[in-house]
């Protein structure tokens, strides 16, 4: 079985009385350790697909298995626990907590694991050193550049050693240089740490870093 398996997934939204189909019977398989880029025009359903794989949205029909768990059958609380153990999520706008330091932001996911404060700090520090921000532990997001913020977000995503990293346009809000640093980091996480990565992007240059390119159009895979 594939590490990520999407089978015949439909996703519809109801807008007033109109049903809008975002994903239309989509199937996709991603192997462990793969780095996959999802591309497609706006409204093609790539972010929706990413959200479904990450268990933060649920399909109207169809099944999604990630690392052997069929997440369509999990309750809300089970899904939350599953996310904390399985998924690392990287947002386009970083979404760091402005009142927390870089270290505290990275410690956040570890609050959900049985771990003492010292161990938490040790792991969070290691994650920040891994993304090259070992000297920015006490900095607040407002004291960091966009690229640094995104690297803190990446550290937060990988600190609990997730099975899959999901990145929603991770370079979309960055300049070319910072975007390049983030892509290099993702590539390194994939090659050195064997992380399975699914990345949504509009940028062909970013998509080139992936092993495989998946195109979506109007809710289905396109050639």
């Amino acid at each position: 079985m594939a590490w990520v398996e999407v089978r015949e997934v439909h996703k519809q939204y109801q807008r007033e009385k109109q049903a809008i189909t975002v994903l239309d019977g989509l199937s996709l398989q991603i192997e462990e350790g793969e780095f996959v880029a999802l591309m497609g025009p706006s409204g093609s359903g790539k972010t929706t697909l990413l959200n479904l794989i990450g268990g933060i949205d649920s399909p109207t029909s169809g099944d999604i298995s990630v690392a052997g768990t069929n997440i369509a059958r999990l309750s809300g609380a089970e899904l939350a626990r599953w996310r904390s153990n399985t998924i690392g999520y990287i947002f386009q706008l970083y979404n760091l907590m402005p009142v927390l330091t870089a270290l505290q932001n990275v410690e956040l996911p570890l609050l959900l694991h049985k771990m003492n404060g010292a161990e938490r700090r040790k792991r969070a520090t290691f994650a920040l050193e891994l993304v090259g921000l070992g000297d920015r532990l006490g900095h607040y997001p407002r004291q960091l550049s966009g690229g640094q913020e995104q690297r803190v977000a990446i550290a937060r995503a990988l600190v609990s050693d997730p099975k899959v990293l999901l990145a929603d346009e991770p370079t979309g809000d960055l300049d070319r240089k910072s975007g390049e640093e983030v892509l290099q980091l993702l590539e390194r996480l994939n090659t050195e740490f064997k992380k399975t990565i699914v990345m949504v992007t509009h940028d062909p240059h970013a998509a080139e870093r992936a092993h495989r390119l998946v195109h979506l159009d109007k809710g289905v895979l396109s050639a």
Binding site: N95, M97, L112
Partner: peptide, 15 residues
């Protein structure tokens, strides 16, 4: 609102 959504994404339960 967005911070709460992020917490939930990280795995914080509704409870």
């Amino acid at each position: 609102t967005s911070e709460i959504a992020v917490l939930k994404t990280l795995g914080f339960t509704d409870g």
